[in-house]
Structures are given as structure tokens and as C-alpha cells.
């Protein structure tokens, strides 16, 4: 109440009022988050650029508001499209943090849901379920993974439509309270938006996540290993490079997720190897090192047997 009174008393600021964007930028501590984004996420150039752009828009918007220039609450709902394992969830988490730092969401938490959390099983079940999720996400970011599943054109009595309608209403009326991020594969999302034009028009930012290159995947692998205090031996490094090159050609390749699974299996084989050679004296370094043989045992290198057995690697969609 008192704030509005103050504003009305203040006279209009002259046009040449100095604006210190840099100071504002520093105050928001947004650089920290962006730096972390740069460090932790390898590649994803277009995504990072978009996030930087969004962040600066929001920052300028905030300064404008301080100078009493009209600034509508921007629509912040987003859509992340990209193949599996390209970092959509991770970026959504960061996005929540950025929006929180800039004061566009109050709490900055991320509620990650899929169709099952939103759509009920019988008539009258969907609305309370969707609303419950929305209420949990208020003050933060609602991340709907594989959002296109909400709409099932083959079944016209599907309850997904009801859920979409509630979402649309909230996205419009409670723009200050919650930011919705939809995520999914590119072509399926396009289809989804095609059949739900209302959804498309309410989402301002469409960000496409590109696939990773081999060298990026390799850098990701090293980062993942470093996080778990592992490292490649020289030969292991080379073997893993070969592995990536081969794995990329195969079907069901899920970018960083496939890499993580491959590393998990390599750790398994490493542990096995260490046990088998129990007679030898082990050092700390041995426990940390992934050797070439741990990787070369992978199914990927046994191309002749590729089609015959569906061994461990088929589980890369976890």
C-alpha cells in the first residue's frame, strides 16, 4: 500500500537518468548461475545464448520497472525440444534458479512431472490431480517432461485434454505465480502444438537442444567421471573415443544419457576386473582408473553379435 503512495509522489524521472545495468547485473548474482551453466554444461551453444538473452531481457525489464517505464510481466513459459539426453531437465533446473535470482519466481524450485502425474484414471480424477501438481509448483517452475503425451489424438475421450485446459487457464491467469516449461522431442512437440494452438500461443520461448558432437560427448564423459572420482587411463581414453564413435551410429542413442550408462557399465567391469586380479596389490590409483579393457568388453565392439543378443546396452532409456 505504502509503496504505491511513494511512487505517485515521485515525479517522473528525466530522460537522461543514468542507468547502471552492470551494477544491477552484479546485484542479481546472475553471473554466478550463468558461469556455472557454462562450466557444467558442455556444448549447447544455442541454448546458452538463448538463456543469456532471456536473462538480459528480464534484467532490463526489471530496471525499466524501477524507472517507472511500463513493463508488462513477460510471458516466461518455455518449450524445450531436443533428443533424449540433451540436458533439458538440467537446463530447466538452472532456469528456475535464474528466474528466482531475477525475482520472477518467488521460490525457485522445480517440480518435474510427466503425464502420469497430471492425468487421472477416471472421470473427475484429472482436475484435482492437475491442480494439486500446479499448486505444488506455484512460486517455482513446473517442468512437464514429454508433454506431447498429454494429448492423445487417437482417443478423443482421453483425459489429457482436460489437463491441458486447466494448464492453459493457469498459464494465463497465474503468470506471476508459476512458469511452465514443456519438454519433449522436436517432431512430437510440433505435432502437439499443431493440435493445441492455444498452448503454442501461450509459450513465448521455444528453445531447441541440439545433439552433442563426439568431442562434446567425450568431454561430458570426463566430467561425469571426475565427479565420481574416476579417470580414464591413456588407453581407456582412446577406447572410449572409439566407443562413442561407434555408439553414435547405433540406434537408441540418447546422448549424455547413453554416455552415463556406458560409464556405469564400465565401472561395473572395472570392479569385476579388480576382483579377478585380487592377488595383485592394488593402489588407490587402480581403484580410480578405467582401463581400455573395461570399455572394449562392451557390446558395441562386438558388431557381429549386435542383432543376436539384446544385452545390457538396450537399457539406455532409463
Amino acid at each position: 500500500m505504502s509503496e504505491t503512495n511513494d511512487n505517485s509522489k515521485q515525479e517522473v524521472l528525466p530522460d537522461d537518468t543514468e542507468v547502471d545495468l552492470q551494477a544491477e547485473f552484479k546485484n542479481s548474482q546472475i553471473q554466478e548461475v550463468l558461469d556455472k551453466l557454462d562450466q557444467d554444461l558442455i556444448g549447447l551453444k544455442p541454448v546458452k545464448t538463448r538463456i543469456r538473452e532471456t536473462a538480459s531481457l528480464l534484467l532490463v525489464d526489471r530496471v525499466r520497472r524501477q524507472l517507472q517505464l511500463s513493463s508488462m510481466a513477460p510471458t516466461l513459459h518455455m518449450c524445450f525440444t531436443g533428443n533424449p539426453g540433451t540436458g533439458k531437465t538440467t537446463v530447466a533446473l538452472r532456469m528456475a534458479e535464474i528466474l528466482h535470482r531475477l525475482g520472477y519466481v518467488r521460490e525457485g524450485h522445480l517440480v518435474s512431472v510427466t503425464r502420469d502425474d497430471l492425468v487421472g484414471q477416471y472421470i473427475g480424477h484429472t482436475a484435482p490431480k492437475t491442480k494439486e501438481v500446479i499448486k505444488k509448483a506455484m512460486g517455482g517452475v513446473l517442468f512437464i517432461d514429454e508433454a506431447y503425451y498429454l494429448y492423445r489424438p487417437e482417443n478423443e475421450r482421453d483425459y489429457g485434454q482436460e489437463s491441458i485446459e486447466i494448464l492453459l487457464q493457469i498459464m494465463e491467469n497465474n503468470r506471476d505465480d508459476l512458469v511452465v516449461i514443456l519438454a519433449g522431442y522436436k517432431n512430437k512437440m510440433d505435432l502437439f502444438f499443431h493440435s493445441n494452438p492455444g498452448m503454442r500461443s501461450r509459450i513465448a520461448h521455444h528453445i531447441d537442444f541440439p545433439d552433442y558432437h563426439t568431442d562434446e560427448l567425450f568431454a561430458i564423459a570426463k566430467l561425469m567421471l571426475a565427479e565420481q572420482s574416476y579417470r580414464f587411463s591413456k588407453d581407456g581414453e582412446k577406447a572410449f573415443g572409439d566407443y562413442i564413435n561407434k555408439r553414435i551410429q547405433m540406434e537408441h542413442f540418447a546422448n549424455a544419457r547413453s554416455i552415463r550408462n556406458a560409464l556405469d557399465r564400465a565401472r561395473l567391469r572395472q570392479a569385476n576386473r579388480l576382483f579377478a586380479s585380487a592377488s595383485k596389490k592394488l593402489t588407490k590409483l587402480d581403484l580410480m582408473t578405467i582401463e581400455a579393457e573395461d570399455i572394449l568388453l562392451s557390446r558395441v565392439f562386438k558388431e557381429d553379435r549386435l542383432d543376436s543378443d539384446a544385452e545390457t546396452t538396450s537399457s539406455n532409456r532409463s
Binding site: R106, E107, H109, K135, K136, M138, G139, G140, N174, D177
Partner: peptide, 10 residues
Amino acid sequence: DLKDPAGILL
């Protein structure tokens, strides 16, 4: 498990 009062006000 709510974080923000907006949901309750709703």
C-alpha cells in the same frame, strides 16, 4: 508439500 501461498489462495 506446497512452497508458495499462491496455490492456497487459489
